[in-house]
Nucleic acid binder design. Structure first.
Lengths: 115, 115
DNA sequence: CTATATACATAGTTACACACAGTATGTCAA
DNA sequence: TTGACATACTGTGTGTAACTATGTATATAG
């Protein structure tokens, strides 16, 4: 059956996106935003991410000093708002540059084998 | 000290490159090539990869049916030559397309926050 | 008052990159 | 001939991170 192929392809696609998730999150947190809304924003822009991935990721990034957060109680349920910290800004710029370099490298690797 | 920052940045860069390694390997294995030479070829093209990463990766990809290999004994020590299989060709095309899509998505995510 | 959307959290599983160490062959120069 | 270095591959252990699944709690609509 064709199942094996599509399973593998899906797994590989996931691996592809893995390293990019942090960059994607950083890119969206210039202004305050909470997890749930961030998740839907990313989804709308073609970068879906599971809850079980996003929330731990946000916590981790705060631990690493890339994000700052605070609880806010408004109309709805309590929400935790995140935004980039000073370090987060710097790392984001570094990471964005590394990303562009990587894109160039991969382009170079692939171009020879264009069918 | 600045150490913490550069450590983190290095770790993130590694994560960034992680998903791309398989794509990079696939891109180079249109023709027969053995691990050691492949490693140096990738290094020369801006995609360095550790031995402890590359060799298990090649084995794994063969298990998954993406590569075919055979031992050859010539002048030097025995070498294991790898090349893309039929499935490998197909997956490579899929993966390359997903990569291009991902590049577009990330571009879209980042462009708003250009300083 | 019950179903659904909102909002966040976490335990468990799996996969992978790397550091480190080991084995063995080939080459070259003192 | 021996010792150093490059070549070529293998294996173990460790750490990190994404996902699945599940749980908790608050709002809102019928």
């Amino acid at each position: 059956m064709q199942k094996a192929h599509s399973d593998l392809a899906a797994k590989l696609e996931q691996e592809l996106r893995r390293g990019v998730l942090m960059l994607a999150v950083l890119s969206q947190l210039k202004d305050n935003q909470y997890g749930y809304s961030l998740r839907h924003a990313l989804d709308a822009k073609g970068m879906p991410i599971e809850e079980g991935t996003l929330y731990p990721l946000l916590r981790r990034m705060e631990e690493q000093g890339l994000l700052q957060s605070e609880w806010k109680i408004e109309d709805g349920p309590p929400r935790r708002y995140y935004r980039r910290s000073k370090d987060g800004e710097r790392i984001y710029r570094d990471l964005a540059e590394q990303w562009r370099a990587l894109v160039g490298t991969v382009e170079g690797l692939m171009e020879e084998s264009t069918s």
